[in-house]
């Protein structure tokens, strides 16, 4: 590479890397520092307490509760979303017509909407007295439950909203992938007497392996966050039934003024994410070998 090319590249990278260091790397490092202190987030400087915060996390039922809720999301959200998206995409692609394009656009709507708007709208849908859901149930004489007020229903209600919000995007991805499958494969299969289900299972699905895996990963990372939707729709309630790590960290810091402890929680969350990403990368690599 010539000198002026390198200069050009460096010049291009300075601004984004500088911004990244200032707004991402620096706060991370700073948070790790604060996690070793006790700090009320006021003017008195943080005081060093070593690893005491991390020891406290291990015995904090609030942390384990939030982690378990993240785990529940991790278990359900990716699988449900991707399965549903596959079914929808397959149904739409049964016959690729001009309507397919229309559906692709319609399915993208929820993804385009701000998550804040989605959360508020669904909050109304779940409203126990004037909500869409309970009004509909009332028609059948059913006294609807208090979706977001019942600890046994709140998280399931949120899963429904998250799936609704993301399923369209993945459907659109899968439609695109399905249309890329050469029609000749299906023709050949049909000549051999294969039915729709058989073709889906043995042709479409194997050829969609890559986009499906990408979608699963994408949703798995999403399951680790979910701050906005939780904060707006339930605030982590009722009685912490929908707390996730992100809202728990926020609560410890900004409601209870425990910034040192909250930073330690954030560091743990960071480590968990890092570990999870490493596992995911490994899984990907194994598969690549298989293809090679």
């Amino acid at each position: 590479m010539r000198a002026h090319q390198i200069r050009f590249i460096v010049l291009l990278l300075v601004v984004p890397l500088g911004a990244y260091s200032l707004f991402v790397v620096y706060p991370y490092v700073w948070a790790i520092g604060i996690s070793l202190t006790e700090w009320r987030g006021l003017a008195t400087p943080p005081s060093w307490i070593g690893l005491a915060n991390f020891a406290a996390i291990l015995g904090d039922p609030g942390f384990w509760n939030a982690l378990r809720n993240n785990g529940v999301y991790l278990l359900f959200v990716p699988v449900v979303t991707v399965t549903l998206a596959l079914v929808l995409a397959a149904l739409i692609c049964q016959r690729c017509t001009r309507l397919t394009e229309f559906y692709r656009v319609v399915f993208l709507f929820p993804q385009v909407m701000s998550i804040v708007v989605v959360a508020i709208l669904w909050g109304y849908a779940f409203h126990p007295r004037i909500g869409l859901l309970n009004s509909a149930l009332e028609v059948f004489g059913i006294n609807g439950p208090s979706w977001l007020g019942d600890p046994n229903l709140a998280q399931a209600s949120l899963v429904a909203v998250i799936v609704w919000n993301s399923v369209g995007f993945h459907t659109a991805l899968f439609i695109a992938a399905m249309r890329a499958v050469p029609e000749t494969y299906y023709e050949a299969a049909r000549l051999d007497g294969a039915g729709n289900w058989r073709m889906f299972r043995d042709i479409t699905l194997p050829l969609l392996r890559d986009p499906v895996r990408t979608s699963l990963m994408f949703m798995a990372f999403e399951a680790f966050d979910l701050f906005a939707i939780t904060r707006i729709m339930t605030g982590g309630g009722p009685n912490h039934a929908t707390d996730v790590l992100a809202t728990y960290v926020y609560d410890q810091a900004f409601s209870l003024s425990r910034f040192g402890y909250a930073s330690a929680l954030a560091v743990v969350m960071f480590a968990l994410m890092l570990g999870f990403s490493a596992v995911m990368l490994l899984v990907m690599r194994e598969n690549k070998v298989e293809f090679a």
């Binding site: 409203h127 126990p128 007295r129 977001l148 007020g149």
Partner: peptide, 14 residues
């Protein structure tokens, strides 16, 4: 019914 899921202003209006 549903009090547990209402905000204070919603409950007060009801």
């Amino acid at each position: 019914d549903g009090s547990e899921a209402l905000s204070h202003t919603e409950a007060q209006a009801e």
